[in-house]
Design a protein around this nucleic acid. Sequence first.
RNA 1: UGGCCCGUAGCUCAGGUGGUUAGAGCGCACGCCUGAUAAGCGUGAGGUCGACAGUUCGAGUCUGUCCGGGCCAACCA
Length: 992
Amino acid sequence: MTDTAAGAAETDYSSTLFLPETAFPMRAGLPEREPVWLKRWEDMDIYKLQREQAADRPLFTLHDGPPYANGNIHIGHALNKTLKDMISRSQQFLGHNAAYVPGWDCHGLPIEWKIEEQYRAKGKDKNEVPIIEFRQECRTFAEQWVDIQREEFKRLGVLGEWDVPYLTMSFDAEAQIARELMKVSMSGQLYRGSKPVMWSVVERTALAEAEIEYADYESDTIWVKFPVLGASANVDTKAEGGFAASADAIRGLDGAFVVIWTTTPWTIPANRAISYSSRISYGLYEITEAPEGNWASVGERYVLADNLAAEVFTKAKVTGTKRLHDVDPGTITACAHPLRGFGGGYTFDVPLLDGDHVTDDTGTGFVHTAPGHGLDDFEIWMNSGRLLAEKGIDSAIPYVVGDDGFYTKDAPGLEGARVIDDNGKKGDANQRVITALAERHAMVARGRVKHQYPHSWRSKKPVIFRNTPQWFVYMDRDISAQGGDTLRARALRAIDQTKFYPAAGQNRLRSMIADRPDWVLSRQRAWGVPITVFVHRQTGEILKDEIVNHRIAQSFEEEGADAWYKPGAAAHYLGSQYPVEDYEMVTDVLDVWFDSGTTHSWVLRNKQKWPHLKFPASMYLEGSDQHRGWFHSSLLESCATNGFAPYDSVLTHGFTMDGEGRKMSKSLGNTVAPQDIIKQYGADILRLWVASSDYSEDLRLGKEIIQTTVDSYRKLRNTLRWLLGNLAHYQPTDTVAFADMPELERLMLHRLAQLDGQVRTAFKEYDFRRVVTLLGNFMNIELSAFYFDIRKDALYCDPISSVRRKASLTVLHHLFDCLTAWLAPILVFTMEECWLERHKEEGASVHLRLLPEVPAEWLDDDLANKWQLIRAVRRVVTGALEIERREKRIGSSLEAAPQVFIADERYLTALEGQDLAEIAITSDISLLASEGPADGFRLEDVPGVAVVPALAEGNRCARSWKVLPEVGSDPDFPDVSLRDAQALRERAELGL
RNA sequence: UGGCCCGUAGCUCAGGUGGUUAGAGCGCACGCCUGAUAAGCGUGAGGUCGACAGUUCGAGUCUGUCCGGGCCAACCA
């Protein structure tokens, strides 16, 4: 113990030190302060300043995928927009002109629902409202949410052209969307086909799945027999030793029946196939015993799934059967329709199709397949195109039921029968079908079943699947002038030419494009851009006339797509050349995916409105669900109209899960609202969370994760705060040249130069997590715990003239310059706050900077290697001191002056000319070139270094707190060290 | 059910082409400092790398199966 420490009070020299001074608060208060920065940026119009400043730089266009304009933003939106913002900003910092134009998707069903809901609340019916009025309400609704979301996005710190966003419902957009559709049509890629959709007869409308609710319903069930027309062994029988297609077996099928079961007898006229499964075992059964006059009579032979035969015969009141042999349904060439010849129709062959959707749980193991009345049915039918062609079967799907529920002429002999009436009650269709079947001896059995059946959410009445005309885009039709090109081929080629982050996205999109059916563009809806097409009533041909198209687009430019619905519109568009009565005006609207799929054509290419955007875009960035969505539709649309992708690269991010990795849902109560995080912690915390997560996978967010983010933010902030506090004492005239700096300073600059390269690479690869990790580690380990800790003595205590002090300040200045720029794309608010703390001039902003140029001469690997060794020795010293502390022999490391024994030549060389005491923050150190005593403190991984602790001798300097023998030797300043005495003298000379 | 993706310490993440006792930061515990102070420094404890099989002299890394989770498969975006 020294004399001064023992008793007498020390003089307080703190006012003579260069202690950190800053107004930058330790506690950020982000929720309150962030809006102030936002206001400042808005007032200075920083987005515009950025554009002007970067006008001559290469463009980087991150094209915003439009969110849907309904409801407040959720955490997924926040993640998406924050990522986009960090990419735009980092690209701007890298030297691009990275404009960001946000957009919104405004048409579509969900908004229609909301308006309809409002109607229902007022007791109004949607169908009574004129469509233009209805559309106007949708438009107003969307506008309102665009405004709300815009404010929420801005609050995240997202910088963009918020005053001129793009909207899919703006008049110019609607005009261009229609133009794009007409381009597709003019090039022969559009055609009218059909598809079964959920249809409400009561409301005369198609329904979305979300508009359907399932309720108990009693259906008629029937077992029907289809006569086998022929069997052949030439059919593939895969299973060896399973279905033996022996001659006997095939002969046995002569005159046999395939039996199906259905709960919708009215779909029998629409039957075109029978599905079976090659995974099910089937047998041929002969009826040996049955009541007199039974539908299923003695001598008849049925093909049935073995698992279901007994049940079927029970239903059919059959009392005795004999199983003849196995049957492979694949050997049956075709059956006849059970109504063959009825009303002069049903003469086509009914093929058997192998389908995975067939099970042997219920029914007969054979599924009655009516492609116009079921999704499975439609799919297997469409996928069997080749097989049907081989068999010479027409693959056209009949329109058996009209929109009013009546059979059409496609149900010969049954016209006028009705499936469902205007009140939602069952019509006579089922009974008429059953009667006809029975008359023709095609019935096996009948019954009733109670089950869950789809009903309209609105009318609560049952709905049906009904074949409906739809507009499609060909995937596989040859569309190029010179031939040999299809939309699918173009799209696949475009995918190969696109860079994907992560790479797996490429395969995902590729396999979707490779497998997808033709693109259905039409929706029977009100709120959308109409399919602006006229069809000749007689020929069914689409009218292709550029003048008509121009009239349409022109009217949309002027009054929006509502023009299509205005009285007299058709006549106006068709002009005098085409008689209105000869043409059908299509009233379907476009799938909203087509809307957003065209944004490249009217956003990226609109140089008048957005001169800083380029086409194709540098990048499209969305959640991974958009492989099926926007990435997909944009690709197809651009390939159809341009022949190539609208983007150079595609980046996908995962979804936000709760802390346990589970999906967030209101019912589970595990949702995290971005608004709440901002209110409690600030947007920078949310942004730091995004930056430190691996966005290529699903992200997790919960209480603990937020806390971790808050903690690491605090650490970053405090490190910067200390920098600022010390830089308060820095004058540009203090700057020390690189060559004149101590090694420790040059080491820090070397690290800056290294980091510069790493940070730039990480930004180029959109790897923010790497930036955060890199800088977080650097600031913690190398700055806070090492460099700052060591240099506190010099920065606080050294004389004003000290080169060491000035060199350190110079380094702090560079550190500040680099760190604020590197972190600015991520912590947009905090870095601005930091930067302005030192740059009070009007119009200053960290966001108007570029990444600082770091001199290559700073790189010095040899120096870094050498300091690796020095730091290893330091660790041994620190370790030794820790034991002294535990034994209560010392508290502060300045109380120690250990002996360091070094036997290893490498360490000795490294330490030549170094002040190890300064580096280890002790008052003194004696360095000895020897093995050292056996009980010296050693570390396993630092061989040849031993430390023997000792107390520092002398008195404690009242100013620097070092314990040195020299303290007391200066008569003018007897209580401080010689360095501190010098410092005090200089101050006195300067009158401080 | 099918296509694609994921599963390393309490948290966020590192762990080229398989090779010694699996790393970092934060958090936590303990100690120090009291001139970054609702801060700073040090030391330490935490992992059967989702499970099980297999290939291999050797697997967190390769293969298969399973378990758990996610996205897609809507006239939802």
